[in-house]
Amino acid sequence: MKTGLLAEHICVHYGRRVVLDDLNVGPFPVGHVSALLGPNGSGKSTLLRAMAGLGESRGTVTLDGQDLSRLSFAQRTRRCIYLPQTLPATVHIQVLESLLAAQHATGWTPAQPEGDAVDGALRMLDVFGIADLAMRYMDELSGGQRQLVGLAQALGRQPDALLLDEPLSALDLHHQFAVMEVLRRETARRGIVTVMVLHDLNIAVRMTDYDVILRDGQIIAAGPPRDVITPDTLRATYDITARVETCSRGLPHVMVDGLS
């Protein structure tokens, strides 16, 4: 049964500093893109890492009813992959090879619907519109191009849950929308869970289906974007005065008036 990604009683501390204390969040729905919002240092990356099983944390994470902590580390990262906030390093290795390496990293390669690993990698690059970069070296790409390669690496492993940490941070407007479209389409088509950290509230309110706002490791609001992104929660989260207006086409739009 597909019940989504659920995290319960998550505790994470760095040394003495407690960042997440008994946090319950989710379930993030299957087939839909969810957003994790919140100011800098609120614990978004920490939460995603904990859900992916990276670093030390306590609590239970279940995906479609299965307790992920029962899996070995390699198996867990195959089901539920975290895409780091930092861009892939500038290594002297071709884009195509970097995708192959990402697939081989756990000594197991995902089955391809057709063709072999090279076909699969190329298809993945094409999904993100960068098939033409296949034979270029990673250390000769722009930041945004590398971010797209990182996304292709993650999706190419065919995970059941995609945890993306600010996947749009280096992308231009065109690619931000293109990537959102791809993620929505692939998430629905594959029936997977996608959670992404976002700072752009307009993208969140328009293109995601389930939002969680975090501040200082506490949940401020969770639910459908229209319920979560409101002037009240935005003041409580970001200390700003903002309005959520409806544009001429009837779509929501967040306008920031100033600091509160």
């Binding site: 990276l54 975290y82 892939p88 390093a89 390496a101 990402a102 990293a105 756990t106």
Partner: peptide, 20 residues
């Protein structure tokens, strides 16, 4: 070799790809 190649792409990235 594969694991080391992935490690070159960054420690956190390698870990998130399942490399111990």
């Amino acid at each position: 070799a594969w694991k080391l190649t992935v490690l070159r792409m960054g420690e956190e990235r390698a870990a998130s790809l399942g490399v111990d």
